[in-house]
Simulated assay, not measured.
Amino acid sequence: MMHQCLAAAACEGKFDALKKLLGEENPQGSTAGEASAAQQLMEGVTAEGDTALHLVAANGEENNFKECASLINTRHSDLLTAQNNKGDTALHSAARAGKHGMVSHLIDLATTARKEQELLRTMNHCQETALHEAVRVGDPVIVGRLLTADGYLARIPEPKDGTSPLYLAILLGADNIAKTLAQNSSSSKGLNALHAAVLRGSEPTKNVLEWTENAAAHERDENGSTPLHFAAGLPDMNLDTVNVCSQVLEANPDALYQADNNGLFPIHVAASVGAVKAVDMFVDKSDRSAGLRNAQGRTFLHVAVEKNQLQVVCYACSNPKLAWIMNMRDNDGNTALHLAVLAGKLRTFSALLRTTQVRLDLINAKGQTPRDIAEYKVAPRLSFELVDTIRLLDPMDTI
């Protein structure tokens, strides 16, 4: 554990006290034993694993603190890149505390020791560099200093490893910092900035598309989701969210036909949350997108029935352009009507039943019609209601 006198000197920037502890007041007269004791003293850490340099970096940026940092680095250069229990370096600590002067001083020390890149690109256990800390506290001065030292920081880490600084800036609403990060990134690849912008609204979405020249609209996250998947999944389709969806779709119309790692297309995502306006937008852009199937062979109508999104079902039933998907069957041979009966959703079932194009006589992979399922698979009371309704019909007719 760190000696209390060393901790006090580091936290308060007491340069003279630190010199005395390290035997720097009379270095020529120090014995080998005293030098060894001073070295061991420097190796002490706090309960969080912070070294003396961590404490100096987090607590000040005036000249006395800088002198303390230089002295510690001279006596124990490994502490410059040492990490605490959370993986933070002294640079992380300085950036988190908003200490502009200390951040710059530590970078200068690392440059002199030829450890600049090692220090700047060190990630903690959250896969974040000191740049992430500067973004989180919203400090454009520190962001600028870090990027001047290493512009590549804006692209660390890759999406599969963690959250990029640009993604974080947009998510936190730090638009001025986000613009700086975007301008310092030679490529938007891997940043997934637009995913974050979509969640914040149409203005941030517009900004990211402009900064990246629409390139961000083509990027996927670790789940294979494009920004259009995110936009389609916004449940409250008000004017702003509709604009978001429209902007992303215009930037990359091909995203309509890109499935995520689970086999879901944007239209499936929209249907699952009841985003009728998004579904309508996609169908209006390309009515062929209505027939896209997920990994289970289901269209957006199947998904809407399965998720009990009545508004989406009613929209599909009332749109003449979608008559051709009404009887499409999934991998199990089930139509949307089969699924409505299986789910026991009478209002959804009724909406489909009133649609002229919906057929009642189609069988699934088990050889069952919707009436068969109503008789054998649904709870007795609900089964009676459904079967009683179907018995009024000739199985070969439609309504």
Score class of each variant (00 low, 15 high):
243 N>S: 15
217 A>M: 14
70 S>Q: 10
17 A>P: 00
219 E>G: 02
291 G>P: 02
270 A>M: 03
394 D>H: 02
51 T>P: 08
285 K>V: 01
170 I>V: 13
373 I>M: 09
13 G>Q: 05
31 T>G: 14
169 A>F: 06
371 R>D: 01
210 E>S: 06
117 Q>F: 03
62 E>D: 14
276 V>N: 11
108 D>Y: 03
369 T>G: 04
141 V>A: 15
374 A>G: 14
163 T>L: 08
196 A>S: 11
238 N>S: 15
221 D>Y: 06
124 N>T: 03
138 G>M: 10
277 K>V: 02
171 L>T: 13
94 A>P: 01
108 D>L: 11
358 V>E: 14
390 I>E: 01
351 A>Q: 05
356 T>S: 13
182 A>T: 05
157 P>A: 10
169 A>I: 07
381 R>T: 05
166 L>N: 05
288 R>Q: 02
21 L>R: 00
143 V>R: 12
186 S>P: 08
184 N>M: 09
88 D>A: 04
165 P>H: 09
196 A>Q: 06
392 L>V: 00
189 K>V: 03
375 E>D: 02
155 R>D: 11
76 H>S: 13
215 A>E: 10
329 R>A: 05
17 A>T: 00
289 S>G: 06
382 L>K: 08
136 R>M: 13
274 G>H: 09
387 V>D: 01
231 A>L: 08
230 F>N: 08
213 E>C: 06
325 I>W: 12
31 T>M: 00
197 A>C: 09
342 L>F: 10
16 D>S: 04
50 D>L: 04
23 G>P: 00
91 L>R: 01
32 A>Q: 10
300 F>H: 01
198 V>H: 00
330 D>A: 11
245 C>F: 15
279 V>A: 02
254 D>R: 15
327 N>C: 07
145 R>W: 04
108 D>N: 07
248 V>K: 14
